[in-house]
């Protein structure tokens, strides 16, 4: 029974990450606000999705896409924060409340996980160098799954819009630890680059 307030510095309010980009060394961190993230599991789920199915090192260019986690599990991502119909509307669901349930017809377990993950983009010329401080990651080694261990945390990781921009979904309670790791890695990467240009 002890007070460890001093040991763990206070977390930053989420809105600080949600409204501004942060510079980490030569890497830019930009918080992303998504409309929805929906976890769907089912024996045929990979074949049931119309939206592009994303693995590594695929580059997402769509506003609505499907992240492949494993052979029977995906996360549907809708990036459009507007009144446009969501991807899941085509599956008859509108995620207006934290929906969760079993669909008999589609044989799918469906759960809204929009509040589980915080999402941000990392961009910069040496972004892979920075990420390689905490993950075994190479564009030469493809994977159907976007799941990765990054600095020991399970994240979803893939590229968006261009090769130098990586998007990360991290469980929110781990967000601040991951950003600390990324800050250290970005600074370390910059030091190494100066020593060995």
């Amino acid at each position: 029974m002890r007070n460890d307030n001093h040991k763990w510095p206070p977390v930053k309010p989420l809105h600080e990450f949600s409204t501004e980009a942060l510079e980490l060394g030569e890497v830019l961190l930009t918080p992303i606000e998504l409309k929805s993230q929906t976890l769907i599991s089912g024996p045929k789920v990979l074949a049931q999705m119309d939206a592009p199915l994303i693995g590594w090192p695929d580059i997402v260019v769509a506003n609505r896409y499907t992240l492949c986690l494993r052979r029977d599990r995906i996360v549907c991502v809708d990036t459009v924060v507007s009144s446009q119909p969501a991807l899941l509307d085509s599956l008859k669901y509108t995620i207006q409340e934290p929906f969760s349930g079993w669909d008999e017809t589609l044989e799918q377990a469906i759960s809204d996980v929009s509040d589980t993950y915080s999402v941000f983009d990392l961009s910069g010329a040496n972004i892979l160098d920075v990420l390689q401080h905490g993950a075994e990651l190479s564009t030469q080694t493809p994977s159907r799954s976007v799941l990765r261990l990054l600095f020991g945390f399970e994240v979803m990781l893939y590229r968006v819009n261009q090769p130098g921009c990586v998007r990360v979904h991290i469980p929110t309670p781990r967000l601040f630890s991951l950003i600390e790791h990324l800050q250290d890695a970005a600074l370390s990467s910059r030091r190494i680059k100066r020593l060995h240009p």
Binding site: S41, D72, R73, S111, V113, T116
Partner: peptide, 14 residues
């Protein structure tokens, strides 16, 4: 039968 049974951990969502 893993095709008839799925586990979603939603602890962090709420």
């Amino acid at each position: 039968n893993p095709d008839k049974l799925f586990i979603h951990d939603l602890t962090l969502n709420f």
